[in-house]
Amino acid sequence: MTDSVSVARPATGGRRKIAIVLFNLGGPDRPEAVRPFLFNLFNDPAIIRVPNPVRFLLAKLISGRRAKVAVEIYAKMGGGSPLLPNTEAQARALETALWDEGEVRCFTCMRYWHPMSEEVALAVRDWNPDEILLLPLYPQFSTTTTASSLRVWNQAAAQAGLDKPTRLVCCYPTEPGFIRANADLIRTGLAEAAPHGKPRVLFSAHGLPEKVVKDGDPYQWQCERTAEAVVKELGIPGLDWVSCYQSRVGPMTWIGPSTEEEVHRAGKDRVPLVVVPIAFVSEHSETLVEIGDEYRHLAGELGVPHFVAVPTVMTHPAFIQGLANLVRQVRAGGGSVCNAFGTRQCPSSFSGCPHAAGGLRAAG
């Protein structure tokens, strides 16, 4: 994978100032931050869908119970999550790709750990842009990710007195640059696995409780469209592939099949695995530890002939150019919410889609 090439930028002069806010989940930057990070996560009404004070008490309980195991997970990555520096690298690459659009500055905005919406909204206000674009680093829309980030951003922007024209890119599950970047990285993984047998590709996304999807969340539908688009881009006849879901927590029934189940099936079938983090665009615990360590170890125990963990798209040039194209499309279009195609793409049965009647809107 090659990083984006730096391009000399002209003097800004009187060019229009564009603030791009990159939404991401965030992660603890040190062991002491693990428990408050987990509390913030489980105290989100989009994650634990019960009213306060019950949610607050559950968040306290769950974060306390999970903290020790989580600290051990982050210890494998040096004591903290690499998500923030990875997102910062993507921000700088995107600024470079958009040098001709105006005076562009990308702000990283994390949902559950710093920098969070309150501090980022103040920084954007102080920079005083002419317009704001909210660009989630969640390619597939979910009420648990993009909608949650947008809700707290709108609150923070209002509190900060940030009153600028604002637009949201709600999703880009089949954006061509995102698809090409994944296909490029998968080809390398397939070439590595091929000497060990016909590989099976697992498109692994973070899971959701079934109830969330049944309530109208389009995330699973969009993840499957992403996988189909990548398979089409690969153009490999007879490719063995499946969409699956990881990171299950709690007693609820989650969407499936689970990635763990698919690793077991590959062991029975004695086929090499190429595991693709299809809903993640930067490395963090779910990719480096859950896929790269835990599933790899499980595959070895189950007799999987070879295991390849495909890296995330990170600053792959095609992905960064795809994000830049999204920014240009949104700026050229109308409306406060854009899915990069100008029209709603989710079936009407998905009431959680922000293009549905009464759906989410970016403030500003």
Rank of each mutant, 00 (worst) to 15 (best):
D44L: 13
N52F: 11
A33Y: 07
R30M: 10
Q159P: 00
E95C: 05
G79P: 01
P136H: 09
E119R: 10
P36V: 13
V152I: 14
L61H: 00
V104H: 03
R105E: 05
I20H: 03
R65D: 10
L133A: 07
K164N: 04
D100T: 12
D44A: 13
N24S: 14
A156M: 11
M116L: 09
L135V: 07
S63Q: 04
C109V: 00
P85L: 06
W99G: 08
S117Y: 06
F56G: 03
V21W: 08
G161P: 03
A75Y: 05
G78Y: 11
P136R: 14
G27D: 01
Y138N: 06
L84E: 01
P136K: 14
F141I: 08
A70K: 04
L83S: 01
P129Q: 01
F107Q: 03
N154L: 10
V104S: 07
N24V: 04
F23L: 06
Y74D: 00
L61A: 11
R55Q: 07
L61D: 01
A67D: 13
A59Y: 11
T146E: 10
W127I: 01
V21S: 06
G79S: 00
R66K: 14
P82H: 04
R30L: 05
F39C: 01
P51Y: 14
L22M: 11
D44P: 11
I48L: 15
N128D: 15
P136A: 02
W99A: 14
A147K: 12
T144Y: 08
N52S: 14
A157K: 05
A156R: 03
N40T: 06
Q90R: 08
L41H: 09
P53W: 12
G64P: 05
E103W: 09
N52P: 04
A75D: 15
L84C: 00
N154S: 11
S149I: 13
F37Y: 15
S149L: 12
P51E: 15
T87G: 02
V71R: 15
A59Q: 09
L41R: 14
I48V: 15
F37Q: 03
G80A: 04
R151M: 15
L98C: 14
P165E: 04
P45N: 13
S148N: 12
A121V: 07
F39W: 14
L98I: 11
V50D: 01
I73F: 09
L61G: 00
K60P: 00
A59P: 09
A123E: 15
